[in-house]
Amino acid sequence: MLGRRETGLGEDAASGASTGGREAAPAHPNRLPTDWWRRNPRYVLYMLREFTAVPIAIWMVWFLVEIGRARGGSAGYRPHQSLAFVIFSVVCLVFAVWHSFTFLRLSGLIVRIPLGERTVPASAIVAGSFGLLIVATVVVGGLLILGGR
């Protein structure tokens, strides 16, 4: 049977009278609940991505400390080689690659380079961004490996 049934608070709103010139009653604020990020898979993915920045930041601080330890030269330097640190580093690398990929993938939409009345195609900007990432990775990696010898 078609019809209505009620759940929740209060009286049937159908019986609500007009304000009839009285001061309007306050509106309900209707904020997103604190668990908003669990309501949508895209929100969850966003929060996960944001939180992966925390271990990356910790690893970067660790890396700065290691540079400080190595300032005396390679002779007296012993890097951390524990399995836990290696696993932590690999996990951070995966997170960093995820950040880089998702960020650079959108660079074509964000970076706008005028070319006359048009702009440089997004695909060219994305390709250039990933190309620069590869070049920077090779250069920095080469400096670290060669410089450490």
């Binding site: 078609l2 209060g10 709103a13 309900h28």
Partner: peptide, 26 residues
């Protein structure tokens, strides 16, 4: 066939909080 719509109802003069009211429609 019918389907149920659960619609938010809120009368600021009567309701302390919004509530849901269900309606079965064709």
């Amino acid at each position: 066939k019918t389907i149920t719509l659960s619609v938010t109802r809120f009368d600021p003069d009567l309701d302390p909080e919004p509530r849901q009211q269900s309606y079965e429609i064709p």
